[in-house]
């Protein structure tokens, strides 16, 4: 089973990288981009075959290491 973790900065946490990307898009002529937020995606290959156990385990991994919950939020997707 595979899991995909999406990690984004929480709303309200300044994302200077996203802001720089938004600025570059505007410079290139892409109008109407009001905001850009940049995050990361982590894919995990798991030995676990039970979906609910896998999700619980990956959630633990997010809390322990993959995300910094002071500034980031995460979503776990099983694929």
């Amino acid at each position: 089973m595979k899991a995909r973790v999406h990690i984004m900065l929480k709303n309200g946490v300044l994302d200077p990288q996203g802001e720089a990307v938004r600025h570059a898009l505007g410079t290139m002529g892409f109008d109407g981009v009001d905001g850009v937020r940049q995050g990361k995606v982590i894919e995990l290959e798991l030995a676990e075959t039970d979906a609910s156990k896998a999700e619980a385990e990956v959630t633990k991994m997010c809390e322990a290491l993959l995300a910094n919950t002071v500034i980031e939020r995460y979503e776990v997707e099983l694929i």
């Binding site: 900065l9 946490v13 300044l14 200077p16 990288q17 720089a20 910094n68 002071v70 500034i71």
Partner: peptide, 17 residues
């Protein structure tokens, strides 16, 4: 230290990148 939780808060990318 902030990642361990021994100090609070977080350190993120410099505002000017």
């Amino acid at each position: 230290l902030v990642e361990t939780g021994l100090l609070p808060g977080a350190l993120v990318r410099n505002a000017g990148l």
